[in-house]
Amino acid sequence: MVKMLIGKKVGMTQVFDDEGRLVPVTVLQVGPCTVTQVKPGGGENAGAVQVGFDDAKPKNVPRPLMGHFRKAGVKPKKVLADTELDGQQSPEPGQQLTVEVFEGVTHVDVQGVSKGRGFAGVVKRHNFSGAPETHGGRFGRRGGSIGTSATPSRVLKGKKMAGHMGAEKVTIRNLEVVRIDPEHDLMLVKGSVAGSNGSYVRVRKAVMPPGR
């Protein structure tokens, strides 16, 4: 079966485990994803499967993409992604894949796009401690000196400075799967996931599960 599915972050809450302890969880709506294409062998991404998630209104889909969906005989989708295959059997175009793909999986990796923070200062972006606002302090949240003088006469590469923060792809590895609810296409993972509620995420079987 496929190794990865597309989903949506629903939000966070808590659930009680068997021992009665509270577990912080992120609720993900994983799938149903539709297979839109099986990449032919030989070329790039040979044998990979393209899956789509979330129905799109036809008026919002570019014509060439419409053709792509028509070829597979599926409704237009909002997000598409390629995934490798786990094992030999390859799904057919048009086939529906649900959370049940992850039945029995203990850990998953979840990829999302973190919340955008815009142009962020050095305190927020790099956890600088900042300087006193009072008691005669004049430097507040400024970054301070960025290096020495004549040697090396330049700023070292990778110097932590203010700049754009967030809105980047973040992968959280080895999130524990707490519960799977095939009826509502839901998966509960322990811990947090990047991105705002309602944003798209990619969920895959853990690449490097713990304890190996």
């Binding site: 629903v10 939000g11 809450t13 659930v15 009680f16 609720v27 709506q29 979330d54 129905d55 799109a56 209104k57 909002k78 609810d181 509502h184 839901l186 509960l188 509620n197 309602g198």
Partner: peptide, 22 residues
């Protein structure tokens, strides 16, 4: 369709997840 009102979404889904624990 994508905007099917009958299927719970967003916060309603969260409430649904919490319900069995209550």
């Amino acid at each position: 369709m994508a905007d099917d009102r009958s299927t719970p979404k967003g916060q309603d889904l969260l409430r649904m997840v919490e319900a069995p624990d209550m």
